[in-house]
Design a protein around this nucleic acid. Sequence first.
RNA 1: GGGGCAUUCGUCUAGCGGCCAAGGACACCGCCCUCUCAAGGCGGAGAUCGCGGGUUCGAAUCCCGCAUGCCCUACCA
Length: 562
Amino acid sequence: MRPAASRLPPATCDQPPATCDQRPATRGRRITTSANRRRLHPHRRRRAPTNVDPHPQSTITNPQFPPSAILPPMTQPLRVRMAPSPTGDLHVGGARTALFNYLMARRAGGSFVLRVEDTDALRSDPAKEAGIYDGLRWLGLHWDEGPDIGGPYGPYRQSERGEVYREAVGALLDSGQAYYDYTTAEERAAERERQRAQGQTQRYSGMGRRFSAADIARRQAAGVVPAVRFRSESRSVSFHDVVLGSITVGPDDVDDFVIARGDGSALYNLAVTVDDHYMRISHVVRGRDHVSNTFRQVLLYQALGWPPPVFAHLPLVVDLRRQKFSKRDGAQWVGAYRTQGYLPEAMLNFLIFLGWAPGDEREIFSVDELTAEFRLERVNRADAVFDVQRLDYFNGVWIRRLDVDDLAARARPYAARGGLTVAPDQHEYFAAGLALEQERLSHLSQTADLMDFFFDDALQPDMRQVRFRRHDPAAAAAALRRVAELVRTVDPFDDPTLEAAMRALAAELGWKAGDLFMPVRVAVTGRRATPPLFATMAVLGRQRCQERLRRALASLAECSAP
RNA sequence: GGGGCAUUCGUCUAGCGGCCAAGGACACCGCCCUCUCAAGGCGGAGAUCGCGGGUUCGAAUCCCGCAUGCCCUACCA
């Protein structure tokens, strides 16, 4: 049984105003597209009057656009989707797209759908699907419907939706808007080669449409398995894009594209269109690399008699070379950032600025704040370079914002991976030390490196790290003996008491405070860069400090001996 | 080759015809704070707004052309 809609004649261009805004290509010369955009939507960058939107939470309204730009009507719930193909882990660009979609859904009280686009059985890897879930979950970008949790419009995996696609392809075939193409790959390659040699546009000519019944019979007999192509009539196609404005393509720019393979399986453009329609997607928000496909999809919507969704194409997230991330970069997978110790909050805060800005000078945003603030209309058009230094900055900010317990809980796995053994009864000790390192931590993966001295009970301080400028090792040894005595007796063994006592000692010795503190620092921590000394000693505790001071004295004896 | 889109400090961005000899942030440099390292504060350097025309009393903002870049151009998504 085919959907009734598929029985309709080919859609002409007179229904939904925003969706079918084809205008004769003959009208005037071709104008610059950006000029075109501004002419049609001169106010797209203008801020919305605050009192225009009567149903801000529950409907899709956008006072900045002519009503025709907004579909579906205000009574329809907002539904957005993220449609990754399981050919890899979650990509940073994909994460950014997911974030934008997620924000829209949350703001409007709509639904965020996750759909897995695995129509390419060869390249799709079911195992990768889990990686995408992991990445999305880690970022906290939860979906309302998806392959794993189901939903009213499933299944949500394209490989399970073959029947739906077959119906649509059948409808298109029945109405003559699609045809079986019996050309061979060799013939098509030859055609392209011929075109290229003659300096012509490389484009499928639709030669498969012109075979006679006898030709087809011969090819069938020869074992040619036909693909199904969409019959793309020569006319200009255009659509309105919330980010890009109206874009148009000429009558000869969309060729007869394949919608189903010889084996009957659907191809991307068909599958996407069918799914977005049946899943009632209201807004398609995706990367700009899909704009050319959008023309094909718009054609399919028209042919099937369906109202298209609102389209919004996001600028690309590119690498330092200003190109799409490639496999070689390695820096493209979200999981890599997770293992490097980035916080999801930081990643999201960083990602949102790739193509969007609030319009004022704030820049630290939580997802909740973003939900209230994000507007598709403020999205940029220029591609954005993924600058990891800026990500690092956001990471530091968000690490410092965490309360210590939360930070400790998140840092523990990194500490373990870094080889730091924290005994079960050392939870509080770990957290106390971490509190001191918090503002020194730019990545959670540094936890072990920064904190190992807290846990190394065999620590052998190397006193040669101390640069003795005003005092020699022997004098330092004498001073350290006084410190050891002080450490043994000072009470309470806390930050202010230790500091007062140590400053008094320095004064008594006639040393500058810093000259005394550095040898002590190296003695009790084994390193020159640490959190503030007395807070650190207080966390280490009297015993560890005494023990380490003893070893430091030994080290000093060695380095002053010939 | 064809089509689409884009172009403000190295990077992310603000900018909506006069408030811009262009603001913020990252990175960089310096100073301050300071027991080291950070964090923080203050300051510096850094963009003839891709280029060329035009409209206007006035253009980063509007118009036209050019250049460059990116994306698409598969029985990939």
